[in-house]
Amino acid sequence: MASDSTHLSHNHHVQPVGMYMKVFGALVVLMVATIAVAQVEALKEYSLLNNFIAMGIAVTKATLVVLFFMGVKFSSALTKIFVLLGFSWFFMLFFMFCDYFTRSWEPVPGWTGTSQETAMPRENRWSEGFDRLK
């Protein structure tokens, strides 16, 4: 068809101001939440959990902006597909981590520690944590 949307129609509805205000309020609350979580001393040791919380909040905020401010919730199926495509394809990049996660599995003959301080090490240093800084 000339346009899939002629029939779905482009009847963009003007949303009430209240909706925008509510979304903005939610965004500010979420921002305060993410700052607050970052300040809680008890949580600071749990790096992974903390990252998940921070990113979870950021994704929620982003979703709110995309759905309401950018109006994707009210737009055509095609627009929705493109939005999904863009955000999901971004994660395709992280396929790269198959490499970085498994580099430490293989013993490399002749690998000595001399250059580890300068070059990107093959071994994962995440587990060493803060010990190596002492």
């Binding site: 198959c98 490499d99 996660f101 498994t102 580099r103 599995w105 293989e106």
Partner: peptide, 9 residues
């Protein structure tokens, strides 16, 4: 020098 496991994949 990428990981050989990734090479396999």
């Amino acid at each position: 020098s990428q990981s050989m496991y990734q090479g396999l994949v």
